[in-house]
């Protein structure tokens, strides 16, 4: 016969059993949300699948990606130092010096983010500031159905047979800065002597259909055959090839000029531990490998890739990375304003 005491004991026990899953489910970052500026499209999808979703399951962390231009994200962050809109800002090499100069980002160390140890030696360009996660390179691309003679260099874009067929980035897009530096160094100049690059641009100018800062716009120009040759990011050319476009990808003879994309933890975030956890996951083989596999952008860690994938990434492995030209982005950031002004005047 059940007594009052046994009834109470069994009720409490049953309640504990029912509550146990909830107690077990309590995770370190429940009710914590991190906001990042995404790169949009497939990039955000891959980040969600390989970083945000696993983190949600493991730690309860929510991640919001706000797609938009990374330059705008950097500008917004610098504009609101007391209440930055992002916990982590994703941007490319040229923007990191601005964030450092504005004292907006925290350094990243292996004790907080253990996977930093997986970064390829000598790769980070700004010491402990910024975590690089992919390497994008400027390559030549051209429509093989409409271009009889292969194009091997930026200088070839001045060929008479390409009149009215060339589309390029302007210097607002870092892709434009990369081909400008390539043309400068190939003609005896460099960051401190950009004149040879502008002389080379003058030769290409008659062939130029248009110049744009938008990667999507440039891709559209090639897909609609508004332009049939130019320079673009290697990953984007790969994506066009995958979509069936007859676009060739050529490592220019001037050399491989690349930039890296970085995660930058913003100072004053309310959730520093969640940020460190996110960065660690974002440097996992799954996340870095997925980006490399989908876009064919160069990985920044020691991740192993299938040979079929590795062979199509121009900056993969010691040999691939040896081809990358080293650039002083801090110096470029100082010079860029003058270059853009000169570019606008020269190319108009």
């Amino acid at each position: 016969m059940q007594t009052r005491r046994t009834f109470l004991v069994s009720t409490v026990a049953a309640g504990a059993v029912l509550a146990a899953p909830a107690i077990v489910r309590a995770k370190p970052f429940d009710n914590v949300t991190l906001t990042l500026n995404g790169f949009g499209g497939d990039f955000d999808r891959i980040m969600k699948e390989t970083v945000a979703d696993p983190l949600k399951a493991e730690t309860g962390l929510d991640v919001t990606y706000a797609p938009g231009g990374s330059s705008a994200a950097v500008a917004k962050t610098i504009a609101t130092p007391d209440n930055p809109p992002f916990d982590i800002v994703l941007c490319d090499s040229p923007s990191v010096p601005e964030l450092i100069k504005a004292d907006m980002i925290d350094p990243v160390t292996p004790d907080k983010v253990p996977n930093v140890a997986n970064l390829l030696p000598g790769l980070p360009e700004f010491g402990q500031h910024g975590v690089p996660f992919m390497i994008s390179s400027s390559v030549i691309t051209y429509n093989t159905e409409e271009t009889q003679t292969p194009i091997a260099s930026y200088a070839d874009l001045a060929r008479p047979d390409l009149e009215g067929r060339v589309a390029l980035f302007n210097l607002e897009n870092t892709g434009g800065v990369l081909y400008l530096l390539a043309m400068a160094e190939a003609n005896g100049g460099g960051i401190d002597n950009i004149d040879p690059a502008f002389a080379a641009l003058e030769r290409i100018k008659p062939n130029i259909v248009t110049l744009t800062s938008s990667t999507v716009s440039l891709i559209q120009l090639f897909e609609q055959r508004e332009a049939t040759a130019g320079a673009l990011w290697n990953g984007r050319v790969f994506a066009m090839q995958n979509a069936g476009q007859p676009m060739a990808m050529v490592a220019p003879s001037e050399g491989i000029y690349s930039l890296m994309s970085y995660y930058n933890p913003i100072k004053g975030t309310k959730h520093p531990e969640a940020v460190a956890t996110y960065l660690n996951k974002a440097l996992s083989d799954e996340a870095i490998g997925a980006i490399a596999n989908f876009f064919r952008y160069g990985p920044t860690t020691t991740v192993d890739l299938p040979k079929a994938v590795a062979d199509t990434i121009i900056t993969f492995g010691p040999e691939g990375r040896a081809k990358i030209k080293t650039l002083d982005w801090t110096k470029i950031a100082e010079k860029r304003s003058g270059w853009i002004e000169r570019f606008n005047r020269t190319m108009a």
Partner: peptide, 16 residues
């Protein structure tokens, strides 16, 4: 494109 320059574009360029 680059042939049509308007002030709004230059302002955007300087700010962003």
């Amino acid at each position: 494109g680059h042939r049509v320059q308007m002030l709004g574009s230059l302002i955007y360029e300087q700010i962003i």
